[in-house]
Simulated scan of single mutants.
Amino acid sequence: MRVLGIETSCDETGVAIYDSERGLMSHVLYSQVKMHAEFGGVVPELASRDHIRKLLPLIKEAFAKAGLKLGEVDGVAYTAGPGLVGALMVGAATARSLAFGWGVPALGVHHMEGHLLAPMLEEVPPPYPFVTLLVSGGHTMLVDVQSPGCYSILGETLDDAAGEAFDKTAKMMGLPYPGGPMLSKIACKGEVGRFKFPRPMVDRPGLDFSFSGLKTAVRLVIADHAENEVVPEQDMADIACGFQEAVVDTLAIKCRRALQQTGHKNLVIAGGVSANSRLRERLADIVKKERCQLFYPRAEFCTDNGAMIAYAGWLRMRVGQQSGYELNIKPRWPLNTLDPIQE
């Protein structure tokens, strides 16, 4: 079975084709980062318009790279949510129209299920069951994954997601958009331990997260070290380092608890923040102590992409799941409300 995957949930247009026998045949991606950088963040209306401009050319490119003619697929999967309403509408309308024209089924896919399953595209995928840490700009949660489609939320953020905390802290520091990756970059030049920020909610039971207090602590330190409203370069690097260590430690502590609580021997990290090298190092130490294994997708599949949507769509479409003709997008869509995948 061959599935076209379309991802347009936010500011990246991703298209891919997945084949059950040949694996991933092609994947192409266009990022809107440069366009939104002028405004310091994603502008939903501009994101939607750019998806309209880029989506069809990318679909043609994906088919060409796969060596296929347009329409040589058995189904079309698209991101139905969560995400920006307008951006989701572009992908959904395009996918449904193509599926109708080609006479194949279409299926709306959960964006976070796509991220959760992205490591399955690797040469050595994680065996079920496993614990997944989903960390991105919009979500931070720990999920008990028993099998495809069977997810239990172990804990989630009560306020900002980890990626959002990175971006907002970077903005406080005056770093250009997208701030999160830039903050991580300058953190590598910082002195570990100079600034000790709180590890939110690690001193209480449970697996939920909170990063709002951490941001406040960083804001106060920035104000204390500003000279004529400018923080010296080394101070900036040390603050960034201290902030990153606090976030990474918090995530690692909760991951260890989740492994101990579930008894699972496999830990998966996925989502944009899973590309953070310091987080990977810290979690590698955790799984070694717990005698577990760590899995994550390659860097290009950590951020939003069409490959994860094509794969997640294939998993569900191969057992007969499909969406109706209506454009039923879900800007808010709890992961644990998904239907299980009945083999």
Rank of each mutant, 00 (worst) to 15 (best):
G5E: 03
E7L: 02
S9G: 15
G14S: 10
E21C: 00
M25Y: 05
L29E: 07
L29V: 14
P44Q: 13
R49T: 02
R49K: 14
L56I: 15
K60E: 14
A66F: 00
G75I: 09
V76Q: 12
A77Y: 02
A80M: 13
G81H: 03
P82K: 11
V85Q: 06
G86R: 13
V90P: 06
G91E: 02
L98C: 11
W102D: 01
W102P: 11
V109L: 11
E113R: 03
P119W: 11
P119T: 10
E122K: 06
V124I: 14
P125N: 01
Y128C: 01
P129M: 12
G138N: 11
L142H: 04
V145Y: 01
Y151N: 02
A161T: 07
A162G: 00
E164Q: 11
G179T: 06
G190I: 09
E191A: 02
R194E: 09
K196C: 08
K196R: 15
V202T: 15
R204Q: 14
G206E: 09
S212H: 11
L214A: 04
V218I: 13
I222G: 01
Q234E: 14
A237Y: 03
G242H: 10
A252D: 05
C255E: 09
R256A: 06
A258F: 04
H264W: 05
L267Q: 04
G272V: 13
S274C: 12
R278Y: 01
L279H: 04
R280C: 02
F301D: 02
N305C: 06
G313L: 01
W314E: 03
V319F: 11
G320S: 04
K330N: 09
D339I: 07
D339Q: 14
I341Q: 00
E343K: 11
